[in-house]
Design a protein around this nucleic acid. Sequence first.
DNA 1: ACCTGAACACCGTTCAAGT
DNA 2: ACCTGAACACCGTTCAAGT
Lengths: 223, 223
Amino acid sequence: MAVRTRSPERREDALSRERIVAAAVELLDDAGESGLTFRALAARLRTGPGAIYWHVANKSELLIAATDAVLIPATVPGVAGETPRDAIRAVALGVFDAIDVHPWAGTQLSRTPAQPALLRIFERVGRQVQALGVPAAGQFTAASAVLHYILGVAQQNAALARSQEPGTDRTAVLEAAAAVWSGLDAEEYPFTRGVADQLRDHDDREQFLAGIDLILTGMSGPR
Amino acid sequence: MAVRTRSPERREDALSRERIVAAAVELLDDAGESGLTFRALAARLRTGPGAIYWHVANKSELLIAATDAVLIPATVPGVAGETPRDAIRAVALGVFDAIDVHPWAGTQLSRTPAQPALLRIFERVGRQVQALGVPAAGQFTAASAVLHYILGVAQQNAALARSQEPGTDRTAVLEAAAAVWSGLDAEEYPFTRGVADQLRDHDDREQFLAGIDLILTGMSGPR
DNA sequence: ACCTGAACACCGTTCAAGT
DNA sequence: ACCTGAACACCGTTCAAGT
């Protein structure tokens, strides 16, 4: 006797919140932030723009969900036995790498104060600051400093990526920025011109970590 | 004999780049980022939307100019005899205060890599890092860390302000954020919940400076 | 319950026509 | 040289109508 399945077999191409968010991530990666429109998204999902609104309230919610999705790997629980310092570095690098692959997420991450990914990052950093032995009164300041630094870099990398074609690799992006710096007025911008070459050659991932270390060192107080 | 003036008396209400940028700043302050449209701007200037394009290339250029305008006070040359540390704190505070008054500028500041205000801030910070005696190899990293931290805070304050009505004062904005944090799940967000009260009461300007100090302390190396 | 797609109320930007 | 405002090619979002 044939048994009726409780939940009927879903059509392969049935719409769902997950499929919509996944398609949005693809579209953002391929075409950049301006590429995500409900019409383009609907075309990719072989439906009309109105259908998307059955599963997602509006574009803002869609962007929050897409950002959250690509930042999940950055906020997975850390390895057991990790030092607080390594844990903070791991979260920071996770965010950095996610934004390297999905530059648009760097902009979105700090656009909405209630972005869940942002809260997860802050919580993780905060706990590690606690574990580091920072006095209670200084924990909020220390965790905020790390968070804001991460957000600043994320934002900056997103802006840099936006100034080039989507998919341009990081060395080409840095090269373009270095060219601008090198062309600045020598009288007015001696420092910036002076470091233009470093911008061209440097490992920005390495420098990002060095900045984290600067803050972590600062937390242990003046020598 | 009547003398012809070389440049004819300008009509009081003649359009100019300066008047357009000033009106854009007003509109952004009054109505937020979504309030700046060419139609609304044209109405305020008692002209048609097309007229604006004679003086400004497009909306992006207008936003860059508006952001630049409100950040001029933050990048004026410092007081003579100032220590490098005080000079860095002064620039940072200047940016912080400008964004307090014009939250939209916090978003714009890091949206375009070639935003002139951003370059001026970086140059100023960089020179002071140099004056602080940071070894050449570490100057770029140190200046970048300070810049990114400032941008992160600017962005975050802009996002917070955007979540409320334009013109809402800072304590009300912080109160709203604290309410969200207090409502978080106790199991998942112990740290964030724990600092919610500090968010409500704290002087965020003070905390911003404390973060700057953390980085400055870190620059002088581990104790 | 879920999807369709035309329609609405906007945008930024262009451009022929005016002064 | 500068301004006007209608028109173009888009948007996000809604909603009556379908299945």
